[in-house]
């Protein structure tokens, strides 16, 4: 465990906490894409298949449980909760996530480190996580108004993967034969997808103006 990875995990944890707090306290999910939340639930479900078979550390298991519980409860809140689901604008959140799931699944079948079910699922979850934010970014562009909790959520989500890249660089130089191109490339693609959001987020923060994404 290194500081970059711990900071990355904490940032990731913060992003789901911010989102859960927003939905739980103001009982609203306005501006949040259910598609992205469902994709994240799928990412964790396919990433953590080994949660009960391979014990790595208490920290690892607890964090996995937290991410699984939070992502599924956010989806539950947005789909079932009688008050929250009223604030979900489904006619704006129209990104068909099958267009993301199928290519990631096909890619994982061809590009993986070992052709086993668990390994393909794990690789699928990496590719899917890289693009899972797209429905959310599309929704932000459409609705154009970003309340600061949603802005913080997306920012923290992008920051966590950027910290993970630093972690991979650190581990590459400190651990022998630590080479994982699949992880690194999908993590880089994921972070680049946030790049334009970061640009507008920092500008709005610097000029102290409300965050607006160009149409």
């Amino acid at each position: 465990m290194n500081i970059f990875r711990l900071a990355g995990d904490m940032t990731h944890l913060m992003s789901v906490i911010v989102l859960l707090l927003k939905i739980h306290t103001i009982k609203s999910c306005a501006g949040i894409s259910l598609k992205t939340q469902e994709l994240y639930a799928l990412v964790f479900a396919t990433r953590y298949l080994d949660i009960f078979t391979d014990f790595i550390s208490l920290y690892n298991t607890i964090m996995k449980l937290i991410f699984l519980a939070s992502s599924f409860s956010i989806v539950w809140y947005m789909r079932q909760h009688k008050i929250v689901r009223r604030s979900y604008d489904k006619d704006q959140d129209t990104f068909r996530h099958l267009f993301l799931i199928l290519p990631c699944l096909l890619l994982a079948l061809f590009i993986n480190e070992k052709f086993t079910f668990k390994e393909v699922m794990w690789t699928f979850s990496l590719f899917l996580e890289a693009v899972a934010i797209l429905p959310q970014l599309v929704l932000l562009q459409r609705t154009r108004n970003i309340d600061n909790l949603t802005g913080q959520y997306v920012f923290l989500l992008g920051a966590y993967r950027a910290l993970y890249i630093l972690n991979w660089i650190y581990r590459y130089f400190t651990e022998p034969h630590y080479v994982h191109w699949i992880t690194w490339i999908s993590g880089l693609v994921q972070t680049l997808l946030y790049a334009d959001f970061f640009y507008y987020y920092f500008n709005s923060w610097k000029n102290n103006v409300k965050l607006q994404l160009p149409a």
Binding site: R5, D9, H12, R47, D50, D54, I56, S57, N60, M63, K64, F67, E113, K114, W122, Y164, N167, R171, E175, H177, Y178, H180, T183
Partner: peptide, 10 residues
């Protein structure tokens, strides 16, 4: 143990 190196990440 090598395969664990990335699998130990979240």
């Amino acid at each position: 143990a090598e395969e664990y190196s990335v699998k130990d990440e979240l």
